[in-house]
Design a protein around this nucleic acid. Structure first.
Lengths: 142, 142
DNA sequence: CGCCTCAATGATAATGATTACCACACTTCG
DNA sequence: CGAAGTGTGGTAATCATTATCATTGAGGCG
């Protein structure tokens, strides 16, 4: 397998693929598939919902995008592959602003817990949801 | 803490409510609403899907049950209220066995990260998914 | 340059979990 | 006993996501 040759992609590069990627790149925070789709359509682009889902998943599979799920079960995507190292997110639950944070300590804690309980092959889901400074200021008066 | 006058609940206690609670109590790990429902039905109990969802959510609201979501967007519930302090879970992705773990360090880390980025009112979602000792042994030969 | 092959696309139907609705049963109280 | 109201549960509706499948466009080859 000539697998990991540079940026070689196994699939053809298409206009739609670029659109989805661009749309993600343009956003600061996480975007839902549905919102990416409707935004693209709103901009007059011609693209199908299926295609958006397809590319979003492809990006996630390639590790170029991170995903997380809202409490309502909606999947959110974000381009993060640039920083190739493992990291987590601190997301504003109001404006959606997302900060990337490191979790050295957490990784260790997770590994330790796993070992302590005899678990192997342990992965973790860690997301922090809060309200960012700007939004806190806004909401103060309410 | 005789506060709430024993087990006083604001709603009537019904047979179905007990069934759902029992079914959850009987399980070691997290259960999906659908599975609780079909198990109950399989045992010959007469109960509606709506009712199962209702009670599951009620338990979650009362803080008597914890919830988490699978990657496929399915909600899972587990009775955990007994241990009233905040904790996290280490779940076996094969057999579903669940260990409750403490996260002193993690809580601190989360709070610290939040402060560092000017976020307030920060909550976190932390779940560890792995393979427990028993299942590791089973899968060794594969 | 035109053709051929096949991945990519996209409209639509299907799926699956969850919720909304609503008529009916059972409790409780007067 | 009857009124009033909560809880129930079947069914339809919702919503995100996935599968289906005929059509389109990309690229390589002759």
């Amino acid at each position: 397998m000539t697998a990991a040759i540079g940026g070689r992609r196994r699939q053809r590069s298409t206009r739609q693929g670029g659109l989805v990627r661009d749309q993600l790149a343009a956003a600061d925070g996480f975007r839902s598939a549905q919102s990416v789709f409707s935004d693209l359509r709103a901009r007059g682009e011609v693209i199908g919902l299926s295609t958006v889902y397809r590319h979003l998943q492809a990006l996630a599979d390639d590790g170029e995008a991170d995903t997380l799920q809202t409490a309502e079960g909606e999947a959110l995507y974000r381009l993060c592959g640039q920083t190739s190292h493992h990291h987590h997110h601190l997301v504003c639950r109001i404006c959606g602003r997302t900060e990337e944070i490191e979790g050295r300590g957490v990784e260790q804690w997770a590994a330790q817990m796993a070992e302590q309980h005899g678990f192997t092959d342990v992965g973790h889901t860690i997301e922090l949801l809060g309200i960012c400074g700007a939004c806190t200021a806004d909401g103060t008066k309410s």
